[in-house]
């Protein structure tokens, strides 16, 4: 874009114009993906224009949407710089942990694929021999111990007399 206005240097060393501020970003330090990430977050706050003055350098130009001061532009650029750093860090962390995330995702998918379905569980339940009762859980207490209790009562006259 045309930049015929005079500029001055900001507190952070950026070039400040009447309504814009511009600075260079080195792609060796901040990958282009990080620059895009920061730009995306600033699109609703200001006008963003990128240019490439020389290889591996990107010039970011932020223009205020409303009239503003040089200090406010400087603060805007400072915030952009912070966001740029945050984006670059997130990007590097994401790249560094990509393998382990892929591993866990694959493991979770494998586990989900081998887990039995509801139909499998119902079929298994239906096929079980529910009438088998080796521990005699379904036998009433009286039927199980009634005879023994009667014999004990007969052998114990005290119990019979109350």
């Amino acid at each position: 874009m045309a930049t015929d206005e005079t500029t001055q240097e900001s507190r952070l060393g950026f070039a400040v114009g009447a309504d814009h501020i511009s600075f260079e970003v080195d792609e060796a330090i901040y990958p282009l993906e990080a620059v895009y990430g920061a730009c995306y977050l600033f699109l609703d706050r200001c006008y963003v224009y990128l240019s490439r003055p020389r290889p591996s350098i990107v010039t970011v130009r932020l223009t205020a949407k409303e009239s503003t001061s040089a200090a406010a532009l400087d603060a805007l650029a400072g915030e952009f710089g912070n966001e740029l750093l945050s984006q670059a860090t997130r990007l590097r962390l994401s790249q560094a942990t990509a393998r382990i995330r892929e591993y866990y995702t694959a493991a979770a998918l494998r586990a989900a694929a081998s887990a039995p379905s509801i139909d499998d569980l119902l079929a298994e339940l239906e096929s079980e021999e529910l009438l088998e009762d080796p521990l005699e859980i379904m036998v009433p207490w009286e039927a199980k111990h009634g005879g023994e209790a009667e014999a004990e009562r007969k052998n114990d006259p005290d119990a019979e007399n109350g």
Binding site: M1, Y36, C39, Y40, L43, Y47, V48, Y49, L50, T63
Partner: peptide
């Protein structure tokens, strides 16, 4: 319009990427 157009181009580029 020029500034808004530039923002739109950048937004389109980022979305497409």
């Amino acid at each position: 319009i020029q500034h808004a157009f530039c923002n739109h181009v950048l937004h389109e580029t980022i979305s497409r990427r």
